[in-house]
């Protein structure tokens, strides 16, 4: 088992590495992590400290990305904003993945009425325009980054659930699972030892794409004025406040937009790369 695992891992990793776009995406993702964590060491400014007399300065050697309308350093805010935007992405997707995996496992493994009940619920949730649901709830609750992560998570688990369920169904009747059942393994053990590891790949792909989606959703919410509450910097709300200055303080608008674009694209390429790597059917060189 273990030897097979490590062999697989090697193959997957090799395939991923050979995909130049995926690799580039992965490097951006990593670099971003490092930059956002090291933010306090990279920039001498505080993300929320104002300077009413130095507002809307264009980019210079002192302020790489200029200053915003209350004199905060945009580069600093974007570094700290990366922390927030990534946090939103990861926590939201974490919630979605957890719920989706549990629902999918239960549904697929136990089947029967429980399965149909859960799957009907998934169908219903799929009917709602997700962004409408998010809007309705977020706008009615008091603004908080935790609610935003929670709501994005709660409205994004259905895909994972279907995915995991399908995976479980295909594995459930395989020989080694049947064998495990025959020798008296408990349900829990079968699920965690034999079924779950097989579902990890597709879920990972889904989660990577989900993070990208959550970052975008947060920026849309911020654009509508109900995203991460200020003064906390997130790429979304830096961008949203920058739109008023599009014409002459372009640095407030351009940089956060580009940052979102590049980051989301990178996550997507990574997700796509992982998919190709674990599913040899569609991969590049076999």
């Amino acid at each position: 088992m273990t030897r097979r695992d490590s062999y697989l891992r090697d193959v997957v990793w090799r395939r991923f590495r050979e995909n130049r776009f995926a690799l580039a995406g992965g490097m951006v993702v990593l670099a971003l992590f490092v930059l956002s964590i090291l933010a306090p060491f990279i920039t001498p400014y505080e993300p929320n400290s104002l300077d009413a007399y130095h507002v809307l300065l264009p980019p210079s050697s002192a302020h790489w990305f200029g200053t915003d309308e209350v004199g905060r350093d945009v580069f600093t805010r974007m570094l700290y904003g990366a922390q927030i935007s990534l946090k939103v992405g990861f926590v939201a997707v974490g919630i979605a993945t957890l719920i989706g995996t549990v629902v999918g496992l239960v549904s697929g493994y136990y089947g029967g009425w429980l399965d149909s009940l859960l799957m009907r619920f998934v169908d219903i949730m799929f009917c709602f325009p997700t962004f409408f649901l998010i809007l309705a709830v977020i706008a009615l609750l008091e603004p908080s980054i935790w609610y935003i992560m929670l709501i994005i998570g709660l409205t994004g688990w259905m895909g994972v659930a279907r995915l995991v369920r399908a995976e479980v169904l295909s594995i459930r009747e395989r020989d080694y699972v049947l064998a495990a059942r025959v020798i008296g393994c408990s349900d829990m053990r079968i699920i965690f030892r034999h079924i779950l590891p097989n579902a990890v790949g597709p879920v990972l792909v889904y989660a990577t794409l989900g993070i990208a989606g959550a970052i975008l959703t947060e920026s849309s919410l911020s654009f509508l004025g109900i995203g991460v509450p200020p003064p906390t910097p997130s790429w979304g709300n830096i961008l949203a406040s920058g739109k008023e200055f599009l014409e002459f303080a372009w640095w407030l608008f351009l940089f956060p937009g580009l940052a979102i674009m590049v980051t989301v694209l990178s996550y997507y390429l990574v997700g796509e790369g992982i998919r190709d790597a674990i599913d040899p059917r569609f991969s590049s060189r076999r």
Partner: peptide
């Protein structure tokens, strides 16, 4: 500390 709260609430 600063808190912004949605108008109705």
């Amino acid at each position: 500390k600063i808190r912004t709260i949605e108008w109705a609430s």
